[in-house]
Design a protein around this nucleic acid. Structure first.
Lengths: 244, 244
DNA sequence: TCAAAGCAAGTGTGATCACAAATCAATAAT
DNA sequence: ATTATTGATTTGTGATCACACTTGCTTTGA
């Protein structure tokens, strides 16, 4: 019987090949819309139509409508009574609300992560920080998209270590909801002369390295509060000017 | 010009008629599945098929698949690699994970509510408590479904006062996820001789009446911990017996 | 000139069909 | 007797169509 030989052969093949995966069209549409949303490609109040998106993404309406439905249940999009869907407007209350929820949940996640991260994982984060500085020094602080992506990886790399399968999807949902707001703030940042965001991330990493959960939570809250506070001021002054 | 008369006439009509609403089939399917899930009608690990549900709900597959997609993104259901969907299994890690997340988020919600509830709202909650006792005394503690529904209204009536449009959907998602677990625990409760759940709710109401946010949070955590702890013990002993 | 009715283009929703993948049962081969 | 293979049924996915509702514009009537 050559069964063992066949088995061995299969194993060597399996070792060489990488799984191809079976992502559906709907999943791709969903990911793409997510990316666009947290990347701030859609602006608040913009209405999205199924057929319009389907044309833009070169598919039929079916995957788009299901992806939109999913995004609506995550509150990343909003279903109007007219049955049209739009990206939610930015209001002062919503900003405060989002910041509070993010501080609470991401704070808890990083506190958990602080007690669980292995030295290897911390090293990985630190390496990320270095790569970041490099990019920042090189590109004269203008590649906002790359910066945002790196920021996202940085945070979620940490959150993944919290060991909670419940918290992480919630955090993703929160990023999705605050994506458009944040992006507005970041663009405003880059106009208004940049603050040293690297400093905040270094504080986070330092706290994690010391396994100091409380310090990590505080550093994180300071980090995510910045754009929200900025946006808040901007909105407030705009409202004040609007009233005069 | 009889414009004013017409206007008046329309107003009287509007006063008499109640808006008919335009709930879609998909929404009804979604609500029904939600109800079934947090009511524990589906058991953990059960797989659900689109066509099966469509037949049971007497619609076509289309509303069902979209409702399922929404429930999957909320983690109320789980998409297997085979593309079939099932209600998530109960594991020890998941129980602890859910309890932690619920304590954190619902705790924050009730702490916020404690500082914001009007006397009128508190009275409404207290009335609810009384109605509860009545039912409990009358029906010889056997109507589990009614009890669960009342419990749900009680909690969400409070959460609604927290004034956060972000936290509440998250709490709903958490209830959806822990629904099947909880229901298992509750059934076990009713076998194992009932604990006095009313006591915990009275503690919550008392704390809210005193506007004591910290006490409210603690009372709430104690309340929601009970079924989780019960289920946890049950699972652990089952695992221990399984190993022998 | 202006407001209201009517029309046309656009949009979301649900049903149905086609197809590929998975599951299961029965049959065949060792 | 047990494993492998084939075939039939079931299932999810995507496309397309029909229909109802909305929206914006044109036309009509005062």
């Amino acid at each position: 019987m050559q069964k063992a030989a066949i088995e061995r052969n299969n194993e060597t093949i399996a070792a060489q090949l990488t799984p191809v995966g079976r992502e559906t069209v709907q999943d791709r549409v969903y990911s793409e819309l997510r990316r666009a949303l947290i990347g701030g490609l859609f602006e608040p109040n913009q209405v999205l139509t199924i057929r319009g998106l389907a044309d833009a993404l070169v598919t039929s309406t079916m995957p788009v409508r299901e992806a939109l439905g999913r995004l609506i249940t995550e509150k990343a999009l909003e279903a109007l009574p007219n049955r049209s869907v739009r990206v939610p407007p930015i209001t002062l209350e919503r900003i405060d609300d989002l910041l509070r929820a993010r501080s609470l949940i991401e704070g808890e996640a990083i506190a958990l992560a602080a007690t669980r991260m292995s030295p290897r994982q911390i090293a990985s984060i630190e390496a990320m920080l270095g790569e970041w500085d490099e990019m920042r020094a090189l590109k004269h602080k203008k590649d906002i998209d790359r910066e945002a992506t790196l920021n996202q990886s940085f945070h979620f790399e940490i959150y993944r270590c919290c060991g909670s399968a419940v918290l992480i999807p919630m955090i993703e949902s929160l990023w999705l909801q605050s994506g458009p707001c944040i992006r507005v703030a970041i663009y405003a940042f880059s106009d208004a002369g940049e603050v040293d965001t690297a400093h905040y991330h270094r504080r986070i990493v330092a706290a994690l390295a010391k396994q100091d959960a409380q310090a990590a939570r505080e550093a994180l809250v300071a980090d995510i509060s910045r754009p929200f506070a900025f946006l808040r001021d901007k909105l407030q002054s705009a409202a004040a000017k609007d009233q005069t």
